[in-house]
Design a protein around this nucleic acid. Structure first.
Length: 254
DNA sequence: ATGGCTACGATCCGTAGA
Protein backbone atom coordinates (compact mmCIF):
# COMPACT_ATOMS: atom_id res chain seq x y z
CA UNK A 1 0.00 0.00 0.00
CA UNK A 2 1.44 3.32 -1.08
CA UNK A 3 0.42 6.54 0.65
CA UNK A 4 1.69 9.87 -0.66
CA UNK A 5 1.44 13.55 0.08
CA UNK A 6 1.92 16.34 -2.44
CA UNK A 7 1.44 20.08 -2.18
CA UNK A 8 0.42 20.72 -5.79
CA UNK A 9 0.21 24.54 -5.55
CA UNK A 10 -3.00 24.82 -7.63
CA UNK A 11 -4.82 21.64 -8.67
CA UNK A 12 -6.02 23.44 -11.77
CA UNK A 13 -2.51 24.15 -13.06
CA UNK A 14 -1.04 20.84 -11.88
CA UNK A 15 -3.86 18.47 -12.91
CA UNK A 16 -2.07 17.07 -16.00
CA UNK A 17 1.07 16.44 -13.92
CA UNK A 18 -0.99 14.87 -11.14
CA UNK A 19 -2.75 12.50 -13.55
CA UNK A 20 0.57 11.50 -15.15
CA UNK A 21 2.11 10.98 -11.73
CA UNK A 22 -0.82 8.84 -10.50
CA UNK A 23 -0.55 6.66 -13.60
CA UNK A 24 3.22 6.27 -13.22
CA UNK A 25 3.38 5.86 -9.43
CA UNK A 26 0.10 4.05 -8.71
CA UNK A 27 -0.33 5.28 -5.13
CA UNK A 28 -3.33 3.92 -3.21
CA UNK A 29 -3.89 7.14 -1.28
CA UNK A 30 -2.66 10.68 -1.97
CA UNK A 31 -3.06 13.69 0.29
CA UNK A 32 -3.06 16.94 -1.69
CA UNK A 33 -2.56 20.49 -0.45
CA UNK A 34 -2.96 24.01 -1.81
CA UNK A 35 -5.75 23.11 -4.21
CA UNK A 36 -6.71 26.79 -4.53
CA UNK A 37 -10.17 25.95 -5.88
CA UNK A 38 -13.71 25.93 -4.58
CA UNK A 39 -15.23 22.47 -4.21
CA UNK A 40 -17.48 23.05 -7.22
CA UNK A 41 -14.38 23.37 -9.40
CA UNK A 42 -12.50 20.35 -8.01
CA UNK A 43 -11.59 18.04 -10.95
CA UNK A 44 -13.45 15.01 -9.58
CA UNK A 45 -14.47 13.61 -12.98
CA UNK A 46 -10.87 13.58 -14.25
CA UNK A 47 -9.66 11.74 -11.14
CA UNK A 48 -12.52 9.25 -11.34
CA UNK A 49 -11.60 8.62 -14.96
CA UNK A 50 -8.12 7.74 -13.67
CA UNK A 51 -9.58 5.20 -11.24
CA UNK A 52 -9.60 7.31 -8.10
CA UNK A 53 -12.19 8.65 -5.70
CA UNK A 54 -11.70 11.85 -3.74
CA UNK A 55 -12.82 13.80 -0.71
CA UNK A 56 -11.96 17.49 -0.71
CA UNK A 57 -12.31 20.70 1.22
CA UNK A 58 -11.36 23.73 -0.81
CA UNK A 59 -11.74 27.47 -1.16
CA UNK A 60 -11.01 30.11 -3.76
CA UNK A 61 -7.38 31.31 -4.17
CA UNK A 62 -5.83 29.84 -1.02
CA UNK A 63 -5.35 26.60 0.89
CA UNK A 64 -7.58 23.61 0.14
CA UNK A 65 -6.92 19.92 0.85
CA UNK A 66 -8.01 16.62 -0.70
CA UNK A 67 -7.61 12.92 -0.12
CA UNK A 68 -7.49 10.92 -3.34
CA UNK A 69 -7.92 7.16 -3.01
CA UNK A 70 -8.52 4.03 -5.04
CA UNK A 71 -10.68 2.57 -2.25
CA UNK A 72 -13.78 4.27 -0.80
CA UNK A 73 -13.40 7.16 1.65
CA UNK A 74 -15.51 6.91 4.77
CA UNK A 75 -16.24 9.11 7.77
CA UNK A 76 -14.94 12.26 6.04
CA UNK A 77 -14.33 15.15 8.45
CA UNK A 78 -13.08 18.58 7.30
CA UNK A 79 -11.20 20.94 9.62
CA UNK A 80 -10.19 20.52 13.23
CA UNK A 81 -13.40 19.98 15.22
CA UNK A 82 -13.79 22.73 17.82
CA UNK A 83 -11.16 24.97 16.21
CA UNK A 84 -12.77 27.77 14.22
CA UNK A 85 -10.70 28.49 11.10
CA UNK A 86 -11.60 30.14 7.79
CA UNK A 87 -8.70 28.32 6.12
CA UNK A 88 -9.37 24.91 4.59
CA UNK A 89 -6.31 23.09 5.86
CA UNK A 90 -7.42 19.77 7.29
CA UNK A 91 -9.34 16.78 5.99
CA UNK A 92 -9.69 13.34 7.56
CA UNK A 93 -11.12 10.15 6.08
CA UNK A 94 -10.99 6.42 6.72
CA UNK A 95 -9.79 4.17 3.90
CA UNK A 96 -9.97 0.42 4.49
CA UNK A 97 -9.66 0.90 8.23
CA UNK A 98 -6.78 3.36 7.98
CA UNK A 99 -7.47 6.84 9.34
CA UNK A 100 -5.88 9.39 7.00
CA UNK A 101 -5.45 13.01 8.07
CA UNK A 102 -4.41 15.37 5.27
CA UNK A 103 -2.74 18.55 6.53
CA UNK A 104 -1.74 21.92 5.13
CA UNK A 105 -0.13 23.56 8.13
CA UNK A 106 0.14 27.36 8.18
CA UNK A 107 3.25 28.96 6.71
CA UNK A 108 3.74 31.47 9.51
CA UNK A 109 5.33 34.12 7.25
CA UNK A 110 7.85 35.49 9.75
CA UNK A 111 8.80 34.72 13.34
CA UNK A 112 6.87 37.05 15.65
CA UNK A 113 4.19 37.97 13.10
CA UNK A 114 0.44 37.50 13.57
CA UNK A 115 0.60 34.60 11.12
CA UNK A 116 3.33 33.03 13.22
CA UNK A 117 1.14 33.21 16.32
CA UNK A 118 -1.68 31.65 14.30
CA UNK A 119 0.65 28.86 13.17
CA UNK A 120 1.57 27.97 16.75
CA UNK A 121 -2.06 28.20 17.91
CA UNK A 122 -3.09 26.01 15.00
CA UNK A 123 -0.41 23.42 15.83
CA UNK A 124 -1.68 23.26 19.41
CA UNK A 125 -5.20 22.54 18.15
CA UNK A 126 -3.82 19.95 15.72
CA UNK A 127 -2.03 18.17 18.53
CA UNK A 128 -5.26 17.83 20.52
CA UNK A 129 -7.11 16.62 17.44
CA UNK A 130 -4.52 13.99 16.52
CA UNK A 131 -4.39 12.78 20.14
CA UNK A 132 -8.14 12.18 20.02
CA UNK A 133 -7.99 10.56 16.57
CA UNK A 134 -5.17 8.24 17.67
CA UNK A 135 -7.22 7.17 20.67
CA UNK A 136 -9.97 5.86 18.38
CA UNK A 137 -7.86 4.85 15.35
CA UNK A 138 -4.76 2.78 16.11
CA UNK A 139 -3.84 2.75 12.40
CA UNK A 140 -3.45 6.42 11.50
CA UNK A 141 -1.42 8.45 9.01
CA UNK A 142 -1.03 12.23 9.23
CA UNK A 143 0.41 13.37 5.93
CA UNK A 144 0.93 16.77 4.46
CA UNK A 145 2.82 20.02 4.23
CA UNK A 146 3.81 20.69 7.85
CA UNK A 147 5.75 23.84 6.99
CA UNK A 148 8.40 22.84 9.53
CA UNK A 149 11.87 21.45 8.82
CA UNK A 150 12.23 19.27 11.91
CA UNK A 151 16.03 19.13 12.13
CA UNK A 152 19.06 20.90 10.71
CA UNK A 153 19.66 17.96 8.35
CA UNK A 154 16.30 18.84 6.79
CA UNK A 155 17.67 22.27 5.81
CA UNK A 156 20.10 22.92 2.93
CA UNK A 157 21.91 25.66 4.85
CA UNK A 158 21.12 25.58 8.57
CA UNK A 159 23.30 28.62 9.25
CA UNK A 160 21.37 30.72 6.74
CA UNK A 161 18.04 29.54 8.12
CA UNK A 162 18.89 29.68 11.82
CA UNK A 163 15.95 31.05 13.82
CA UNK A 164 13.93 31.70 10.68
CA UNK A 165 10.40 30.64 9.82
CA UNK A 166 10.06 26.83 9.37
CA UNK A 167 12.98 26.10 11.69
CA UNK A 168 12.46 28.31 14.77
CA UNK A 169 12.50 26.48 18.09
CA UNK A 170 8.80 26.99 18.90
CA UNK A 171 7.86 25.58 15.48
CA UNK A 172 10.14 22.60 15.87
CA UNK A 173 8.78 22.01 19.37
CA UNK A 174 5.22 22.12 18.00
CA UNK A 175 6.18 19.56 15.36
CA UNK A 176 7.97 17.35 17.93
CA UNK A 177 4.85 17.47 20.09
CA UNK A 178 3.13 15.48 17.35
CA UNK A 179 5.81 12.78 17.57
CA UNK A 180 5.33 12.79 21.34
CA UNK A 181 1.80 11.49 20.66
CA UNK A 182 3.44 8.35 19.29
CA UNK A 183 3.63 9.32 15.63
CA UNK A 184 6.72 8.43 13.60
CA UNK A 185 8.26 10.43 10.77
CA UNK A 186 8.33 7.57 8.23
CA UNK A 187 11.16 9.19 6.25
CA UNK A 188 13.45 8.83 9.27
CA UNK A 189 12.61 5.18 9.86
CA UNK A 190 15.19 4.40 7.18
CA UNK A 191 18.73 5.24 6.17
CA UNK A 192 18.46 8.18 3.79
CA UNK A 193 20.97 9.98 1.62
CA UNK A 194 22.03 13.42 2.82
CA UNK A 195 20.39 16.61 1.62
CA UNK A 196 17.00 15.21 0.64
CA UNK A 197 14.33 17.90 0.56
CA UNK A 198 10.66 18.24 -0.44
CA UNK A 199 10.45 21.95 -1.24
CA UNK A 200 12.64 24.34 -3.22
CA UNK A 201 12.00 28.04 -3.77
CA UNK A 202 10.99 28.95 -7.31
CA UNK A 203 13.58 31.73 -7.20
CA UNK A 204 17.35 31.76 -7.06
CA UNK A 205 17.74 28.55 -9.09
CA UNK A 206 17.02 26.85 -5.78
CA UNK A 207 16.10 23.48 -7.24
CA UNK A 208 19.20 23.33 -9.40
CA UNK A 209 21.31 24.18 -6.35
CA UNK A 210 19.30 21.73 -4.20
CA UNK A 211 18.67 24.64 -1.83
CA UNK A 212 15.62 23.11 -0.23
CA UNK A 213 13.81 22.16 2.96
CA UNK A 214 12.14 18.91 4.00
CA UNK A 215 8.83 20.30 5.19
CA UNK A 216 6.45 17.66 3.78
CA UNK A 217 6.09 14.50 5.82
CA UNK A 218 4.14 11.29 6.26
CA UNK A 219 3.67 10.63 9.97
CA UNK A 220 2.43 7.19 11.02
CA UNK A 221 1.05 5.79 14.26
CA UNK A 222 3.14 3.07 15.92
CA UNK A 223 0.91 0.27 14.58
CA UNK A 224 1.17 1.66 11.04
CA UNK A 225 4.86 2.55 11.24
CA UNK A 226 5.63 -1.08 12.05
CA UNK A 227 4.34 -1.93 8.57
CA UNK A 228 6.29 0.80 6.79
CA UNK A 229 8.91 -0.59 4.42
CA UNK A 230 10.01 2.55 2.57
CA UNK A 231 9.68 6.32 2.42
CA UNK A 232 11.15 8.52 -0.28
CA UNK A 233 10.73 11.86 -1.98
CA UNK A 234 10.05 11.79 -5.71
CA UNK A 235 11.94 14.68 -7.29
CA UNK A 236 10.78 13.86 -10.83
CA UNK A 237 7.71 16.14 -10.92
CA UNK A 238 9.83 19.07 -9.67
CA UNK A 239 11.94 18.76 -12.84
CA UNK A 240 8.98 19.27 -15.21
CA UNK A 241 7.96 22.48 -16.93
CA UNK A 242 5.78 24.61 -14.65
CA UNK A 243 6.22 22.43 -11.56
CA UNK A 244 4.84 22.75 -8.08
CA UNK A 245 7.51 24.05 -5.71
CA UNK A 246 6.93 20.87 -3.62
CA UNK A 247 7.77 17.27 -4.50
CA UNK A 248 5.62 14.28 -3.49
CA UNK A 249 6.57 12.16 -0.48
CA UNK A 250 5.70 8.47 -0.86
CA UNK A 251 5.50 5.95 2.00
CA UNK A 252 5.02 2.23 1.38
CA UNK A 253 3.33 -0.13 3.85
CA UNK A 254 3.02 -3.92 3.84
C1' DA B 1 22.83 41.25 -3.17
C1' DT B 2 17.18 40.30 1.74
C1' DG B 3 15.95 39.97 -4.37
C1' DG B 4 15.32 36.78 -7.67
C1' DC B 5 9.40 32.98 -9.01
C1' DT B 6 4.55 31.43 -9.32
C1' DA B 7 -0.63 31.50 -8.79
C1' DC B 8 -4.48 34.14 -8.16
C1' DG B 9 -7.77 37.73 -8.68
C1' DA B 10 -7.70 41.94 -9.22
C1' DT B 11 -6.37 44.64 -13.41
C1' DC B 12 -1.33 45.68 -15.75
C1' DC B 13 -0.25 45.57 -9.32
C1' DG B 14 -1.04 43.44 -4.57
C1' DT B 15 -1.19 39.28 -1.68
C1' DA B 16 0.67 35.02 -0.39
C1' DG B 17 3.58 31.34 -0.41
C1' DA B 18 8.15 29.34 2.27
Amino acid sequence: MKLATWNVNSIKVRLPQLLDWLAATQPDIVCLQELKVEDAKFPLAELEQAGYRAAYSGQKTYNGVAIVSKAPLENVVPGIPGFADDHKRVLAATVEGLRVVCLYCPNGQAVGSDKYAYKLRWYQALRGYLAAELASHPRLAAAGDFNVAPEDRDVHDPKLWEGQIHVSEPERNAWQALLALGLKDTFRLFEQPEKIFSWWDYRMLAFRRNAGLRIDQVLASQALAERCSECSIDKAPRKLERPSDHAPVVATFS
